[in-house]
């Protein structure tokens, strides 16, 4: 995985995707996010469009249910329903680790700046936030930390790797 560019992670640099209700018509142009049900129903129509598309799922969705569709998806947006609900972190982890998804994983929903490190290190690669102030706070938070204990999904070395002069298998391969 590439080193993350904080400027592209959130805010105005995000690629725009419109979330489309299950019954609403697909727009002619522009990136869209659809539900898993819509994806299964309208796969051909989605593929026929020239713009990228992705899934919008809740944090409690099972990664295995998404697995058959991963190759087609530019993005998977995980909706965090409550800011205290951590299931989306495990979903992001599973998409990366269990299913090798290398596309964009976007976090949306009830997110605050304090989620920043946790999201990034669970495999999330972009974050949709409510307003520019929270975005600024979010970026500030990412610059604040330089030490992590756990083997995680970003390229920054962990304290354990630095202590033992080692590189992770995942990054080396």
């Amino acid at each position: 995985m590439e080193r993350l560019d904080l400027r592209k992670l959130t805010g105005a640099h995000l690629k725009p995707y419109r979330s489309i209700d299950d019954e609403a018509p697909l727009p002619d142009e522009g990136g869209v996010l659809v539900s898993l049900a819509r994806l299964k129903r309208d796969r051909a129509a989605l593929a026929a469009r020239k713009s990228p598309y992705g899934l919008l799922v809740n944090g409690d969705e099972k990664a295995a249910h998404l697995a058959p569709h991963l190759e087609d998806l530019a993005v998977i947006a995980i909706n965090f329903g409550k800011f205290s609900d951590g299931r989306g972190f495990s979903l992001a982890h599973r998409l990366r680790e269990d299913h090798g998804f290398s596309g964009e994983i976007r976090a949306t929903g009830a997110l605050i700046a304090d989620h920043a490190e946790f999201l990034l290190r669970s495999g999330v690669s972009s974050v949709e936030l409510a307003d520019p102030i929270i975005t600024a706070q979010f970026i500030k938070r990412l610059k604040l930390y330089s030490v992590w204990y756990q083997d995680a999904h970003d390229a920054r070395p962990t304290a354990l790797e630095l202590r033992h002069g080692r590189t992770r298998k995942r990054l080396a391969s």
């Binding site: 800011f83 605050i112 700046a113 304090d114 102030i133 929270i134 706070q137 500030k140 938070r141 604040l144 930390y145 330089s146 030490v147 992590w148 204990y149 304290a159 630095l162 202590r163």
Partner: peptide, 29 residues
């Protein structure tokens, strides 16, 4: 590394207190 992480966590908390005081964080958050 251990020391740095603890120090950074305090800086983060100090910032969170400021955000609560300025109303950028809700009581629940």
């Amino acid at each position: 590394y251990d020391q740095t992480l603890v120090n950074q966590r305090i800086a983060d908390f100090r910032d969170a207190v400021a955000r609560r005081l300025s109303g950028h964080l809700s009581e629940e958050e």
